[in-house]
């Protein structure tokens, strides 16, 4: 083979290899903002959850920069220096909130920038962003647990009250006032409404749990998906609200019964009314049962098992002491 043709082939071969390398380096460089103009912003976190330099910074889910430096300021503050692309400057405002999140189930830790719906000037070099601590699943479950305990207590109270109502003859006589009867009826209607809400939220949670258990959507979805976290929070809050309403209603009912003011009698002789009451209590019971079941399911979910086991251990320790 003529030498010239060999040399041409050799040159092409080498160029092809170098092109591969160059392409990789340029593409990687673009991702890590090595070549573009960037602006530097800072944010101080309490906890960065294993964030590393080089991790991505995202705005509305789009990668807009990288973490350049992480340093500890003091025992409760970690300063994160980020480089953002110049091109996103018009879209980020000074009041944007930074939070640390995760990208997928076993993915990298990332910094999320969230815009706040309030007017503020555009971000500039050297700005310090506000931060939030992301909603941790631990806290969520703790709230849920408290609500559950409340619910159980309330239901027991309700049971006692109905028992008293059924058993005490003197009580029937006290209940003569038409006015009070109307009040009580209204209260009970409130109660029915509240329990219905309670049941709905319990169903919500039940659905979520079932979803998790069936593995619909990888488990990372549970841990990181903002939507789900929101839903969960919403459900918990609703549950808390409905228990509050229930507690309020029952409190007024109890007060009425204890003071003996007004003719509860009328109300209580009304068979339809007592049926309604019984049904309502049935609802409450059902709802609570469902909720308990959900909690149980959550306890068995493999991702959260560890958490509950820890809780149980703590309880056992506390009992031991």
């Amino acid at each position: 083979m003529p030498t010239a043709s060999r040399h041409i082939r050799l040159v092409l071969f080498v160029l092809a290899g170098l092109a591969c390398l160059a392409a990789t380096l340029v593409l990687l460089g673009q991702r890590q903002n090595l070549f573009g103009a960037s602006l530097t912003v800072r944010a101080d976190f309490r906890n960065v959850s294993g964030l590393l330099t080089g991790n991505n910074v995202r705005l509305a889910g789009i990668t807009v920069g990288t973490v350049k430096e992480i340093s500890i300021l003091n025992d409760s503050t970690v300063r994160v220096v980020m480089h953002l692309n110049r091109d996103v400057q018009p879209h980020v405002r000074k009041n944007a909130v930074a939070s640390v999140g995760t990208d997928g189930l076993v993915g990298n830790t990332i910094v999320n920038l969230t815009a706040v719906a309030a007017p503020a000037p555009l971000i500039a070099d050297g700005d310090v962003l506000r931060t939030t601590t992301p909603l941790a699943i631990d806290e969520m479950l703790q709230t849920l647990s408290v609500s559950n305990k409340n619910l159980v207590g309330i239901t027991q109270d309700l049971h006692q009250i109905t028992g008293k109502l059924n058993g005490s003859r003197a009580l029937w006589e006290l209940l003569g006032d038409q006015h009070v009867a109307a009040n009580v009826r209204q209260s009970l209607r409130h109660l029915a409404g509240a329990t219905a809400t309670l049941q709905t939220s319990a169903t919500d949670i039940s659905q979520l749990t079932r979803g998790i258990r069936q593995g619909r959507g990888p488990a990372g979805y549970l841990l990181t998906d903002k939507d789900f976290a929101g839903q969960m929070r919403h459900a918990t809050r609703q549950l808390a609200r409905s228990t509050d309403t229930l507690a309020g209603t029952l409190g007024s009912l109890q007060r009425q019964v204890q003071t003996g003011a007004g003719p509860l009698h009328t109300l209580l002789t009304d068979t339809a009314m007592s049926g309604q009451l019984r049904q309502t209590l049935g609802h409450v019971e059902q709802g609570t049962a469902g909720f308990n079941q959900n909690m149980e399911a959550l306890k068995h979910n493999f991702l959260l098992r560890g958490y509950f086991r820890k809780q149980a251990k703590k309880k056992a320790q506390a009992a031991g002491q």
Binding site: F13, V14, A16, G17, L18, C20, L21
Partner: peptide, 8 residues
């Protein structure tokens, strides 16, 4: 190295 890059 060139061969490796192309092999990659």
């Amino acid at each position: 190295p060139i061969l490796t890059l192309l092999a990659d």
